[in-house]
């Protein structure tokens, strides 16, 4: 696995662009990606970098359950990066959007502007954190913890600029969608077989009684 992710294996210089493909035909909604992520990244209680949204729809007997594993989309045009006033958020050459924990001032503007609600305040470190596709593991030649642990192999991670990678081949041969493409953030988490109702944030909830942990 490690060798597959190395740059320019064929000798030519090529820019890596990492992406995640979620094959929902294989997802069973076990939440082990959430658990692996919490363990790997020491995500505090009550916060999640990765989670699986679960919905049920239909009327008996025509019912179904759908999952939406959620990560930071590591957008190609990240609005959080544009809005961060102190350059704490930056984009790596391989497309991963990172937060520099030594520069973050905790103004929370990135959280307010992110259209996917993937950022959180770490209550212990008092800075903003988010999923970075386990950049430290990638640098060590490993796969992200969620990908490594996914029991149905629903998560496929790799370089979309490499035509021979599994993710490139799957994306070329399957219909894929992203979350909120109209916002032109160019998200790089792709879904095969995602349910429209699961992707719609306003479906299936009573908007007047959503709990946002307001202090007032």
């Amino acid at each position: 696995m490690a060798k597959e992710l190395e740059p320019s294996r064929d000798g030519r210089k090529r820019k890596i662009r990492y992406a995640m493909l979620v094959d929902l035909r294989r997802c069973v909604g076990c939440q082990s990606c959430s658990v692996a992520c919490k363990s790997e990244n020491e995500v505090p209680l009550g916060k999640f970098r990765t989670w699986v949204k679960v919905i049920e729809k239909g009327r008996y007997p025509d019912v179904s359950r759908h999952f939406l594993p959620s990560f930071c989309n590591n957008c190609a045009k990240p609005i959080c990066n544009r809005n961060c006033p102190v350059k704490a958020t930056y984009v790596r050459d391989d497309g991963i959007v990172m937060v520099n924990m030594h520069r973050c001032i905790g103004c929370m503007y990135c959280m307010a502007s992110c259209p996917y609600d993937v950022r959180y305040i770490n209550p212990l470190r008092k800075i903003v954190q988010k999923c970075d596709w386990c950049a430290h593991r990638l640098d060590a030649g490993l796969l992200p913890a969620c990908v490594e642990t996914c029991l149905g192999r629903a998560l496929i991670f790799g370089d979309i600029n490499d035509p021979n990678s599994e993710i490139s081949q799957l994306m070329s041969t399957n219909p894929v969608v992203t979350l909120k493409p109209a916002l032109d953030t160019q998200p790089h988490v792709f879904y095969i077989g995602a349910d429209a109702d699961a992707m719609d944030p306003t479906k299936g909830i009573d908007i007047d009684h959503v709990h946002f942990h307001e202090p007032y």
């Binding site: 989670w51 949204k53 679960v54 049920e56 993937v118 950022r119 959503v210």
Partner: peptide, 9 residues
Amino acid sequence: VTVLYNAPH
């Protein structure tokens, strides 16, 4: 549609 699980921040 019913949302069974989600993790808003």
